[in-house]
Design a binder for these strands. Structure first.
Lengths: 186, 186
DNA sequence: ACCTGAACACCGTTCAAGT
DNA sequence: ACCTGAACACCGTTCAAGT
């Protein structure tokens, strides 16, 4: 049986989950698959391309939950933001991976496109929707990336003295709510 | 005359300005300075340390402007945010460099600490201040990083089809204002 | 069609040894 | 004190040649 794109993506996801983005190299990936590095390039354009696929996969189950319109608890945007955060936290350096992918190709991530749709539905103008979605996206990715870096640092060695252990869940929702309140106040 | 920490930092800043973060390697830096790579490690702990110093320098002139309390035009937080953005935009990949530094050591960047101070002065509670500052910081760094990535991509090759050329200045201030309005509505 | 072998052009960091 | 030389353990990517 020959190597598969799926196998490559799965092995990459494994490295990400267990060792983080710093350990995810094409060579390490090839080693894990028992194959020469060059073999990967038959199935995948390059590393960026691979990271893009990983980013999509990290956010994949988010939309499934969100399509469900029956949930009546709270603001839908708030819920989607929380779901995205959960998905990012489920994978080591998830926020960094998605940030990279998002930087190179926004619009490619459905979960984030959905943010827009929901804002649009809430009755904002087109421009408010676009800029509002960008504001929220930057906040979400930045906040979770900080959480994960913090977690990595305190797991590995010392983090620089200040162990300001804020409640991350609360802080996150505080930020989301602030942005949403601000958007509606426009 | 022997090599100096200052020379190293200045040469690094030069590479950053003209070629970007992707070209800023310790070996390239050594080559530019006419010295062996190992020599750098006498003056600088490691690359992360160097990037931290660069981040501080990128944001250095921001505080100078902001200490001036005589300016009466508009919200001081809004002005500071705009000043930070300007400082970041002045250097290639400035937002990425500062994001890296901020991830590894928040509190180390005075300009960003000032954001907190200003929010505190505006009469928010301690928690609102901390979380509000985080929200704003993530937005600022994320928004400018996106601007610069976009600029890099359109300068280098093709950016993926969608040349959504929004007005970045307006979009940025829109985001800042939304967050600020949201904070005050709490 | 799919992969190996081998190369090209790089990295960050350490450290004995020199001056 | 400060730097060189040389090494260690890596990178991403390409591509002729094999099967």
């Amino acid at each position: 049986m020959s190597l598969t794109r799926r196998q490559i993506v799965d092995a990459a996801m494994d490295i990400l989950r267990h060792y983080g983005l710093g350990d995810l190299s094409m060579r390490r990936l090839a080693r894990d698959l028992g194959v020469q590095p060059g073999a990967l390039y038959w199935h995948v354009k390059n590393k960026q391309d691979l990271l893009g696929v990983l980013a999509e996969q990290i956010l994949a189950e988010v939309d499934a939950d969100t399509v469900d319109p029956a949930a009546t608890d709270g603001d839908p945007v708030r819920r989607l933001a929380a779901d995205i955060r959960t998905a990012l936290l489920a994978v080591r350096d998830g926020a960094d991976v998605v940030s990279l992918a998002h930087a190179l190709n926004p619009e490619a991530l459905p979960a984030i496109a959905t943010l827009r749709t929901l804002l649009q539905d809430a009755g904002l103008t087109d421009q408010q929707t676009r800029w509002g979605a960008r504001t929220l996206t930057h906040f979400i990715l930045g906040a979770v990336a900080e959480e994960q870096t913090h977690a990595d640092l305190s797991a590995a060695g010392l983090l620089p003295e200040n162990v300001r252990q804020d409640n991350d869940d609360e802080a996150f929702l505080f930020g989301v709510d602030a942005v949403l309140a601000g958007l509606r106040a426009r």
